[in-house]
Design a protein around this nucleic acid. Structure first.
Length: 772
RNA sequence: GCGCGGGUGGUGGAAUCGGUAGACACGAGAGACUUAAAAUCUCUUGACUGAAUAAGUCGUGCGGGUUCAAGUCCCGCCCCGCGCACCA
């Protein structure tokens, strides 16, 4: 992952569990508490800024989303995944704060450098490629979070343009990265511009001064641009301080402090009541030229889009609530018929056309562009736990992050007496000093192992591949073996409609790109099964103490077979089932009856030949086989129960007379029961003098010949109401059946004195006589 | 708020295409066996009228509609569960 550029470290605000002393991912926070400590007495989690490892799942967001539709999964899970990925199409629009300037070109910076510029620590930039900029001209400054994620943040005036060989650029150039040696400087520049760079390569240095701020706002409704009457930036937005006037500074600082202190849960809880503060500055709506105030408010989330929005109170509920509360303007720009008004040249266009035209205009004017954003964030994979897969990385004081060389893999966790966190925010691994201190694989100097371990979701993202080749000591798994088995035909999960199921898809896709597996998707079919709840419908929980211990049921004499059979019989697999203490005794009774049949069969003696038993078992085989394929376990078991009841009735009559047919029937019944009651089935399978195991090659075949019978029941309706049943030969024709129906005594009591308007015959099912 | 499921006996739940509503099980009732109980076996069990295991009427959240026929299809409501949730 690291080599592919998909693993990186970053200091971010993270959920922190104070009990386990570890960070948590968003999805491990349940109702404001740690997923492992969600009892009534457990504390709420809070956010902490910690340097963490991340996997760049966002890079796969689009392809994961696009592949979702084709999955043979239930729609609810597919939808949950789509929501989680949360793709939105719209536009990113630059709003100039302060005086507008005609910009000639753009200069791009990494987020760290952007912060330095905003703080005034950096006022120059070094470029290999010459920009079309001269002294006195203006440049648009942009933050480049990734190749595709670029946002404007300021307009600067060029104050000086110089060219210089790399070797001549002073090492302490203002605000620039500090290098100890020329070699370090060269190495860094090569990393950025390529190996062809030497100390003689000419670079251009642009010195600049900030003139205006630019706030980039993301919107899905560029068609409403003319109705944008104010801007809102998130309290965490890095430009906020630079946007705030001296008079407003105290108020804004107080607001920021208050809202960042609020937990996310609290923010959500009072999400109806909007709060916010004016920054004191005004931006220009590029469409109308109007000055619009810039506010900060925590209803705008920093983590989504650009962390800033253009507010259109006339067409957005949240903006409307905010505008009403703080007395801000609203300008309607879309009429009830869906066409634009108050929108200059775009008046009269329908909103969809206007959307495209306005984005085209923005792009032409270089003040905005079409843009797609996702809700999914990069996956935080660091955990400050001892238990977990080690991260095979060492940090060298000189060379920084270095991968543990392949020959030293796997990294084995040290043996410890005490697994409690080290206390300095790191895991217990930090206390294993012998293990911790290693030499740098690159320079041999002092280095430390990574003390974070990986989120357990990492292991569950590929275990299904390793299970196919578990003893391979050379590599992760053998691709030939994996390709033979993968993808998993049927995956049944009880939770994790999003988390595990998205992570596993992501990692499998990554392994697919490396060429290790042919199929990019891990699970062909997936079913999200229901849970067993307490008898009052509430979830089992440790704190409530309302759980049922399966071992207690098993050991009380019912056994695992009866428990399993009950769980599968209680409700369809995807439903949640309320625990019913009478349920296991019920399925135990059924299994006992199967057992009794086999015992009584063994004790019985030869009698008359008859195929009656086959007419019971063959339909059952067909029904159970079909239901199992559809994961309809509850009705499959019902069919077995029904067949068992019928066999009871039959044996009372024929005393297991036809030995061969009864043997087939009982063997079949045992095989059908085996998936649910494997222990019982295995024992009975052997009692019926079979070798091997019932769990292999024993599945019975049904014979269509025993599904049909000589007679059938045809019901007779008069005006849609059931009036009689006819037991007729299966091959009897339409006319004869209709005749019989009309001749039926009871039917005639409803048809006499009336006129028969119509007779409808549904073959093999019913006759409906319509009378007037 | 948005999205997705769902509403059927005392209970969990059955019911390919619109075609016998309530399979199967639990619970309940009755009987057989037993000194007795448990276990087991057999029968009954949607509601109402009825002596009836004769027959009829009603009945799948509510109100309408389509159809020879609606749990199933259409329109309008009500309720419940789950997921997401200030995502611009």
């Amino acid at each position: 992952m690291y080599k592919a550029g998909l693993a990186y470290q970053d200091a971010r605000m993270q959920w922190w569990c104070d009990i386990d002393k570890t960070v948590l991912s968003n999805e491990q926070v349940v109702d404001g508490k740690c997923w492992r400590h969600d009892g009534a007495d457990d504390p709420l989690v809070a956010k902490k800024e910690i340097k963490q490892w991340f996997f760049k799942i966002t890079e796969y967001a689009d392809e994961l989303l696009e592949a979702t539709d084709a999955l043979d999964w239930t729609d609810t899970v597919k939808l949950a995944q789509k929501n989680w990925i949360g793709k939105s199409q719209g536009a990113q629009i630059d709003f100039v704060v302060g005086d507008p300037h005609d910009t000639k070109d753009t200069l791009k910076f990494t987020p760290e450098l952007t912060d330095m510029i905003l703080r005034g620590e950096k006022t120059s930039t070094v470029r290999l490629e010459a920009k079309d900029l001269a002294v006195g001209e203006y440049a648009l400054l942009q933050t480049r979070k990734s190749k595709d994620d670029v946002a404007s943040f300021a307009v600067a005036e060029i104050t000086q343009v110089r060219t210089m060989a790399l070797g001549q650029i002073p090492i302490d150039l203002e605000g620039h990265e500090q290098y100890d040696t020329e070699e370090q400087k060269l190495a860094d520049y090569r990393r950025y511009y390529g190996e062809s760079v030497t100390l003689d390569t000419e670079f251009t240095i642009y010195d600049f001064e900030l003139r205006s701020q630019v706030v980039a706002a993301f919107t899905t409704r560029p068609d409403t641009l003319f109705g944008a009457t104010f801007l809102v930036v998130a309290p965490e937005h890095p430009q906020l301080a630079a946007l705030t006037t001296a008079e407003q500074k105290a108020v804004v600082d107080a607001y920021v402090k208050e809202s960042t202190k609020k937990s996310e849960l609290e923010r959500m809880a009072d999400n109806k009541e909007k709060s916010g503060t004016f920054t004191g500055t005004y931006a220009t709506n590029p469409a109308t030229g109007e000055k619009i105030p810039v506010w900060t408010a925590d209803y705008v989330l920093y983590g989504y889009g650009t962390g800033a929005i253009m507010a259109v109170p006339a067409h957005d509920e949240r903006d409307q609530a905010f505008a009403e509360k703080f007395g801000l303007n609203a300008v309607p720009v879309v009429a009830d018929d869906g066409t634009l008004v108050n929108s200059g040249d775009f008046d009269g266009l329908n909103a969809n056309d206007a959307r495209e035209k306005i984005v085209a205009w923005l792009e032409e004017e270089s003040i905005g562009e079409s843009k797609t954003t996702f809700k999914i964030r990069d996956w935080s994979v660091s955990r400050q736990r001892y238990w977990g897969a080690p991260i095979p990385v060492v940090t060298c004081q000189k060379d920084g992050i270095q991968l543990v060389p392949d020959e030293d893999l796997p990294v084995v966790l040290p043996e410890l007496q005490n697994f409690a966190p080290s206390g300095d925010g790191r895991s217990a691994l930090a206390t294993a000093t012998d293990w911790l201190h290693v030499s740098c694989p690159k320079c041999g100097g002092p280095a430390e192992r990574e003390t974070d371990t990986l989120d357990t979701y990492i292991c569950s993202s590929w275990y299904f591949l390793r299970y196919l080749d578990p003893n391979n000591s050379e590599k992760i798994f053998d691709s030939a073996i994996a390709n033979e088995w993968m993808p998993v035909d049927f995956y049944n999960g009880g939770d994790h409609a999003t988390a595990h199921m998205i992570y596993a898809r992501f990692i499998t896709r990554f392994l697919h790109k490396l060429g290790l597996v042919n199929n990019p998707e891990p699970f062909k079919r997936f079913l999200f099964n229901g849970k067993v709840t307490a008898s009052d419908g509430s979830a089992f929980s440790k704190s409530k103490g309302n759980g049922i211990d399966p071992l207690e049921i098993i050991n009380s004499g019912y056994g695992a077979d009866a428990l399993r059979t009950y769980l599968m019989f209680a409700a369809p697999l995807e439903f949640s089932a309320r625990w019913d203490s009478q349920g296991v005794p019920g399925s135990y009774r059924f299994l006992n009856r199967v057992w009794t049949l086999v015992q009584e069969y063994a004790a019985a003696t030869q009698g008359d030949a008859s195929d009656a038993v086959l007419r019971i078992i063959h339909p059952a085989i067909r029904k159970v086989t079909a239901d199992l394929e559809d994961q309809k376990y509850n009705t499959a078991i019902a069919a077995m129960m029904k067949a068992t009841n019928e066999l009871y009735e039959l044996k009372a009559k024929d005393s297991f007379g036809d030995r061969a047919n009864w043997k087939f029937a009982l063997e079949s019944l045992v095989a059908l029961v085996a998936p649910f009651a494997p222990h019982l089935a295995e024992e009975l399978w052997h009692q019926l003098s079979n070798d091997g195991t019932v769990n292999r090659d024993s599945w019975p075949q049904w014979d269509d010949a025993y599904l049909v019978s000589d007679t059938m029941t045809v019901i007779v309706q008069v005006n849609g109401k059931l009036r009689a049943r006819l037991e007729v030969a299966t091959d009897l024709g339409k006319e004869s059946i209709e005749e019989l129906a009309l001749a039926d005594e009871h039917v005639q009591s409803f048809t006499q004195d009336k006129q028969v308007a119509k007779v409808i015959y549904v073959p093999g099912k019913l006759v409906n006589i319509v009378v007037k």
